[in-house]
């Protein structure tokens, strides 16, 4: 992996770090701050999310404990002396709105780039053993409902917008870009206002420029007809030199999409 500033930033964030006994460490990635310390066989962790703060100071040692931390404890039988901070996808489907409402004419394909705020998986490490302690969001996302008043699904609402150009959003080591290729294979225009993505089917890749997920291809065949969605195991052709950071939580079972009307796309 070429040693670009963004690659260095990603490596500084998502890595395995050694922890000495009774030493306080801090990790910050975007609005999320985590404090960690180890006492013999116990691990203690505290976290907080700062709405306005967006620094990425990464892993550092602290001399003084900030006031008001609410600690959680994990006792272990063995002395786990390292901690791994790994990016993972959020635990719910994600709803993102397009920056500008789009109408896809029949026969046209359009690529959208969705910037997904990642969660961090904190695991205690001893040689080859890794034990997960907790998963935390880097950004506290608000809840949203995808469906109607009678049924649907609880999702997270992404603060970012789906964009047509991948260069539209600035790099952040806590965000991964998900390319979504939508093909209107019907006779009518397809209005696209928002997209719901099942994050559990997405891998996370690292490239010299940013973090990516695998591409999702959606083929819309018309109102009332089942459409097809494919979770590719590859990235778009123009993205080179990618390294797999984290596999998807779940492989997709059925590639079916149901268009709910009014421009909603629910990608399963």
């Amino acid at each position: 992996m070429p040693d670009t500033p963004t690659a260095a930033a990603v490596n500084a964030m998502w890595n395995t770090f050694s922890c000495d006994n009774n030493v306080l460490y801090q990790w910050q990635n975007g609005p999320l701050k985590i404090w960690l310390k180890r006492t013999a066989n116990d691990w203690l962790l505290a976290s907080d999310t700062f709405i306005e703060e967006d620094a990425q100071t990464g892993w550092s040692q602290l001399l003084e404990e900030p006031a008001g931390l609410e600690w959680k404890r994990w006792p272990f039988n063995d002395m786990f002396d390292q901690v791994a901070l790994i990016p993972v996808m959020p635990d719910r489907p994600l709803v993102v709105k397009t920056r500008i409402e789009s109408n896809l004419p029949p026969g046209v394909k359009a690529m959208f780039y969705v910037h997904i705020s990642l969660h961090v998986k904190v695991s205690a490490v001893l040689k080859n053993r890794m034990v997960e302690m907790i998963r935390l969001p880097t950004i506290t996302l608000s809840n949203t409902w995808f469906g109607d008043n009678f049924g649907g699904e609880l999702c997270y609402a992404l603060k970012t917008r789906a964009v047509r150009d991948q260069r539209d959003a600035t790099f952040a080591p806590y965000r991964a870009v998900c390319p979504v290729l939508i093909h209107n294979d019907s006779d009518t225009a397809l209005p696209i206002q928002k997209i719901c993505i099942r994050a559990k089917h997405l891998n996370i890749y690292q490239t010299p420029e940013r973090l990516w997920t695998n591409q999702v291809n959606v083929t819309f065949r018309g109102e009332g007809l089942t459409s097809r969605v494919d979770y590719k195991t590859t990235l778009p052709v123009e993205i080179q030199d990618a390294r797999l950071l984290q596999e998807a939580e779940e492989k997709p079972q059925n590639n079916i999409i149901s268009t709910l009307g009014h421009g909603f796309l629910n990608i399963f």
Binding site: V95, T140, L141, S142, N143, T144, W145, F146, N149, A157
Partner: peptide
């Protein structure tokens, strides 16, 4: 309401 995490964005 928008800033409260338990409030749904939609509806």
């Amino acid at each position: 309401a928008d800033k409260n995490p338990y409030s749904l964005d939609e509806p």
